[in-house]
Simulated assay, not measured.
Amino acid sequence: MKKLIALILFPFLVIPFGAKANDNFSVEIEALTLVMEQYKADTESSVELDIEDKKPSYMALKQDECNATVEVTKTTGLEVVNTESFDVNVCLKEIYKVIN
């Protein structure tokens, strides 16, 4: 029984999990951080008296080593209220809003 447990646990001790996760997703993480900071500043400056609580969700897609696309979707419960897209250049720390 001890040999079976050791055999099962051995690969988990030898192979490090998530060691390169931040390196692989660093562009997406930085792009999301930049958009969230700008989006939070924009929503704090505008005063809205909505009864419904709009909650944003974020999704980032890497284009290359410096660029990513971030989509911000506002939802109230199950209803999608608004979707905005941003092109983010992480190297220059610039955010461009995509107009559809």
Results as ranks from 00 to 15, higher is better:
P11T: 09
P11C: 07
P11K: 14
P11H: 13
P11Q: 09
F12C: 13
L13M: 15
L13V: 09
L13C: 10
L13A: 11
L13H: 03
L13E: 07
V14G: 03
V14E: 08
V14F: 07
V14M: 14
V14N: 09
I15F: 13
I15C: 10
P16F: 12
P16S: 15
P16T: 10
F17I: 06
F17D: 08
F17G: 11
F17H: 05
G18E: 15
A19L: 15
A19M: 14
A19R: 05
A19E: 10
A19D: 12
A19C: 07
A19V: 12
K20D: 13
K20H: 10
K20V: 15
A21W: 13
N22T: 07
N22W: 07
N22I: 14
N22S: 13
D23G: 06
D23F: 09
D23A: 15
N24L: 13
N24H: 13
N24P: 01
N24S: 04
N24C: 08
F25V: 00
F25R: 07
F25A: 03
F25I: 01
V27I: 13
V27S: 01
V27W: 00
V27Y: 00
E28C: 08
E28Y: 02
E28L: 00
E28K: 04
E28W: 02
I29V: 10
I29T: 14
I29M: 07
I29D: 01
E30K: 03
E30S: 08
A31L: 01
A31Q: 01
A31V: 03
A31M: 02
L32P: 01
L32M: 14
L32F: 06
L32T: 05
T33N: 08
T33Y: 02
T33L: 08
T33W: 01
T33G: 02
L34V: 05
L34A: 06
L34Q: 03
V35L: 04
V35Q: 00
M36N: 04
M36E: 04
M36H: 03
M36R: 04
M36A: 09
M36Q: 06
E37I: 07
E37Q: 09
E37M: 08
E37K: 12
E37G: 05
E37V: 12
Q38Y: 03
Q38D: 03
Y39T: 01
Y39W: 12
Y39L: 09
Y39M: 14
Y39A: 05
K40S: 12
K40H: 05
K40D: 11
K40P: 01
D42R: 15
T43A: 14
T43L: 08
E44I: 10
E44K: 15
E44Y: 06
E44D: 13
S45K: 11
S45A: 12
S45T: 03
S45H: 11
S45E: 12
S45C: 10
S45M: 11
S45F: 05
S46L: 10
S46Y: 10
S46I: 08
S46W: 04
V47F: 08
V47L: 13
V47M: 09
E48C: 06
E48Q: 14
E48V: 14
E48H: 07
E48L: 15
E48S: 13
